[in-house]
Design a protein around this nucleic acid. Structure first.
Lengths: 163, 163
DNA sequence: ACGGATGACTTGAAGGTTGAAGTAACGGAC
DNA sequence: GTCCGTTACTTCAACCTTCAAGTCATCCGT
C-alpha cells in the first residue's frame, strides 16, 4: 500500500508490539471465558444472553426489534434469532410482529426475564469490577477507553456505539 | 454482601467505567471475529489453529507435548485434542507418543504444516498491524501492554506467559 | 512388586454458532 | 394493481466446543 523501502509494512512485529499482542490475545480469550463462566454459574445464561436481556431491560417498553437488538448485543441476526427462540422457551422473552411493519419482529422482556436480569446484574458488575477495574488505575481506565475505541473504529468505521 | 453504606462495592459502574466497559466488550467480540474471518479466508484455518501451528513452528524440533501446546495456545486440552485430530487428517501435524513418558503425546508439525504457517503468517501480521497497531500511538501500545497484563494476571495469577 | 493415586489424553453426547439458502413483508415503478 | 428488488427474519446442515466420563501410563508407598 505504502511506498517506503525499508520497514513500512514489515513482515514481523517489533518486540514491544509482539509483547503487546500476546497480552491482548490472552486478554481476549480469558476475559470472554471468565465472563461466560461467571454468568452461567450465577444466572444460568451466557454472557451474550445477558447482553440481550440487559439491552431489552434498558429500553422504553422493554421491547426492541430483533435487528436493533442484534446490533446492541453485537451478534449476528442468526445467532440472535436462535438465542431468542431458546429464551422464549424459557419464558424470559416474548416475540410478536411489529404492527407498523410486518417484516420486523419485536422482542419483549417478560417479567420473569426482567427478574432474571435484575438478579444477575449485581454479580456481573461485581465480576467486571473485580477483573477489570479494580486492577487498573483511573488513568488506565481512560487509556483503555481510547485504545479500545480506536481499534473498534478501525475494524468497523460505521460503529455508532462509541463516541 | 458488603457492609459499607456508600460506595464500597457499588452496584453500578461509574459513567466513565461504563464507557470503558462497552468499548472493551466491543473490542473482545469484534477483534476475535475479525481475526478468525481473516484466517479462514486467507489460510483456511481458524485463529486458534493458527496459534497451534505457530507455536509448534517456533519450537526446537517443531514438536511439543499436547498439554504444553494447550497452554501455549490458551485452550483446553480437549479442544486441542480435537483440533489436532482434524489437522492430522489434513496432514498438517503428526502425533506420536513421547518416548520418555508414555502418558504424553507429542505433536509434530509436518512440512505441509510448516508451509501453511509460513504462507499464513504475513497476512496475519498485516491484519494485526492494520487493526491494532496502526491506529495506536507507540505510547498507547505500551499502555495496552500494561493494562492487558494486569487484567490477565487478575484472571489467572498463575499465568506465566507474561513478564 | 503390588495397588491406589495421579496425570495425560481421548471420546461421546449435548448444545451453540455460522453461513447459506429459504420465506415473508414491504416499497416503488410502471 | 403487479413486478421486482430489498429488507427482516428463520431454518438447516456443518462444524466446533465443552463437560463429563473413560482409558492408559506412570509414580509412590509399602
Amino acid at each position: 500500500m505504502e511506498e517506503r523501502t525499508d520497514d513500512d509494512a514489515p513482515q514481523w512485529l517489533a518486540p514491544d508490539e509482539q509483547e503487546s499482542w500476546l497480552a491482548l490475545v490472552s486478554l481476549l480469550v480469558r476475559l470472554e471465558s471468565a465472563l461466560d463462566t461467571q454468568m452461567r454459574a450465577d444466572a444460568g445464561i451466557t454472557h451474550f444472553e445477558y447482553g440481550v436481556l440487559s439491552a431489552l431491560s434498558e429500553t422504553e417498553g422493554r421491547t426492541m426489534r430483533l435487528s436493533d437488538l442484534a446490533v446492541m448485543a453485537e451478534g449476528s441476526l442468526s445467532r440472535l434469532s436462535n438465542v431468542v427462540t431458546r429464551m422464549e422457551k424459557r419464558g424470559l422473552v416474548r416475540r410478536h410482529p411489529d404492527p407498523d411493519d410486518g417484516r420486523y419482529t419485536l422482542a419483549t422482556l417478560t417479567d420473569a426475564g426482567w427478574d432474571l436480569v435484575v438478579a444477575a446484574a449485581p454479580g456481573h458488575v461485581r465480576e467486571v469490577r473485580r477483573l477489570v477495574f479494580d486492577p487498573l488505575t483511573r488513568t488506565q481506565v481512560g487509556q483503555l477507553t481510547s485504545i479500545a475505541r480506536r481499534i473498534v473504529r478501525t475494524i468497523d468505521p460505521a460503529d455508532r456505539c462509541l463516541g
